[in-house]
Simulated scan of single mutants.
Amino acid sequence: MAKASLMNASPMKIRAARRDDLRALLALYADDGFGRTREAATSGADYERAFHAIAADANHLPIVGKVDVEIVATLLLSFLPGPSRSGAWRAQIEGKRVSAPLRGRGWGKQRRGWAITKARRRGCELVQLTSDRRRSAAHRFYEDVGFEATHHGFKTTLDIQ
């Protein structure tokens, strides 16, 4: 579907991601300056294995947002038990993407609402997400929809042999 026709398209519909959506998901992951370099280095077989593991685990809900027949958004909602907060469950949102030409149309808010509803139904006490510190526009969006920057995150990359 052409970008111009997407701008005037139907509302986004959210559904569970399927294996045959993988090509569209990879395009969304690589649809910005960060993803272009990070996502291009991994083979399709690696993504296939990861998607299979995610889809097989009831604590992970990969979703896509579709407009007409095109996948234009995605996220992964994971449910995590925790030893703190009296053993409270939390929901983790990862892999959040909206197609670049369609950002700012409210679809991020729609997916956030979907994720919050699912988290409440699963008995989660909080919803958390991470975002690269260089994504200032994304940070403004998350604050606008009710998230607070309460922690500093740390990561280390592991060499896989």
Rank of each mutant, 00 (worst) to 15 (best):
M1N: 06
A2L: 12
A2P: 05
L6G: 02
L6Q: 00
L6P: 00
M7T: 10
S10K: 14
S10E: 12
S10W: 01
S10P: 01
P11W: 03
P11E: 14
M12G: 01
M12V: 00
M12L: 14
M12C: 03
R15L: 07
D20E: 15
L22M: 14
R23K: 14
L25W: 01
A27H: 08
A27T: 03
A27E: 09
L28Q: 00
Y29P: 00
D31Y: 02
D31W: 02
D32E: 09
G33C: 06
G35S: 05
G35R: 00
R36W: 08
T37M: 08
E39G: 11
T42P: 00
T42A: 10
G44I: 14
G44W: 10
A45I: 07
Y47L: 01
E48V: 02
A50Y: 08
F51Q: 07
A53H: 09
A53C: 07
A56E: 13
D57W: 05
A58Y: 04
A58V: 09
N59V: 06
H60R: 13
H60F: 15
V67S: 03
I71H: 00
A73K: 04
A73M: 02
T74D: 01
T74E: 05
L76W: 02
L76I: 10
F79K: 01
F79S: 00
F79D: 01
G82D: 10
P83G: 09
S84T: 15
W89A: 07
R90A: 07
R90V: 11
Q92A: 13
K96Y: 13
K96D: 12
R97K: 10
V98C: 08
G104A: 02
G106H: 05
G106L: 04
K109W: 08
R111G: 03
R112I: 04
G113W: 05
W114N: 01
I116A: 11
T117D: 15
R120F: 06
R121H: 12
R122K: 15
G123D: 10
E125V: 09
L126I: 09
V127F: 08
V127N: 06
Q128S: 12
Q128G: 06
T130D: 14
S131L: 04
D132W: 08
R134T: 14
R135K: 13
H139S: 07
H139Y: 03
H139V: 04
H139R: 02
E143G: 11
E143K: 15
D144F: 04
G146C: 10
G146L: 11
A149T: 06
T150F: 04
F154W: 13
K155Q: 15
K155Y: 11
T157Y: 06
D159I: 04
Q161V: 08
